[in-house]
């Protein structure tokens, strides 16, 4: 066990876990989207879980830093909140906000983060960019909604964990990046049908079975 101080509160954490996990385990919420408990090398890609740690010049990603004894952490500084709000606005600028028709409504982490950061589900002054077409239905069982997806990569992670080789991938690059099931239509094996782990893990319901696309 290590003991660290978060927002002036002393907490205990298991050896070797990240600052993010330590905080979440102790009921201190830090917005995060791409981290899964127990991940050995997290992607550090959503850029939400910033904290300030004494001795570090700049905010750091709490999922990528191990909790150590005597560490002094702040999760709520102005700079941290500033970065989180900007990251959230950026995500909103590519997110199709249609909560009423979205199966993730009311259990969506984006809604939770909006409430937590006290920001609307809007991109502020930023222009909205939605992908067209808004659904990829090439997979025999699964539909993918790129304008819901925030590319956390959890689906690929669990697919790899379950099957060794993921059956899905990030495809294209940069702003055009999407999740792709390329080639899956030719593989009508039972693996996907029996697993559906990617659907269970998708926090924003960007990946759904064909029959539950809209609620």
């Amino acid at each position: 066990m290590v003991r660290l101080v978060v927002n002036d509160l002393e907490i205990e954490a298991e050896d070797g876990i990240s600052v993010l996990e330590a905080c979440l385990n102790n009921g201190i919420y830090i917005p995060n989207l791409c981290f899964i408990n127990g991940m050995s090398s997290p992607p550090v890609s959503c850029r939400m879980c910033f904290v300030e740690i004494e001795g570090e010049a700049r905010p750091v990603s709490s999922c990528a830093v191990k909790a150590t004894d005597g560490m002094k952490v702040r999760t709520d500084t102005e700079q941290v909140r500033g970065l989180q709000r900007t990251a959230f606005q950026l995500l909103m600028s590519v997110h199709d906000v249609d909560c009423g028709r979205c199966p993730a409504n009311k259990r969506c982490p984006l809604q939770r983060i909006a409430v937590f950061l006290k920001v609307p589900l809007r991109p502020g002054r930023l222009e909205k960019h939605l992908k067209n077409p808004d659904v990829d239905n090439v997979h025999p069982l699964i539909d993918y909604y790129p304008n819901r997806c925030m590319l956390c990569g959890k689906c690929i992670f669990v697919c790899r964990e379950k099957h060794g080789q993921p059956r899905m991938t990030f495809a294209k690059r940069g702003f055009e990046t999407v999740i792709s099931f390329y080639g899956e239509k030719d593989l009508s094996g039972p693996a996907c049908k029996e697993c559906l782990a990617c659907i269970d893990i998708c926090p924003v319901r960007a990946i759904v079975t064909k029959d539950q696309a809209v609620e």
Binding site: P43, V44, S45, C46, R47, M48, T86, A87, L90, L91, S93, V94, L126, E127, H129, M150, L151, F170, K172, R173, G174, F175, E176, T177
Partner: peptide, 15 residues
């Protein structure tokens, strides 16, 4: 040329 992995670079540079 952004790889598209992280939010700031992927979406921010576009804006």
């Amino acid at each position: 040329e952004s790889c598209g992995k992280c939010t700031f670079c992927r979406i921010g540079t576009r804006h």
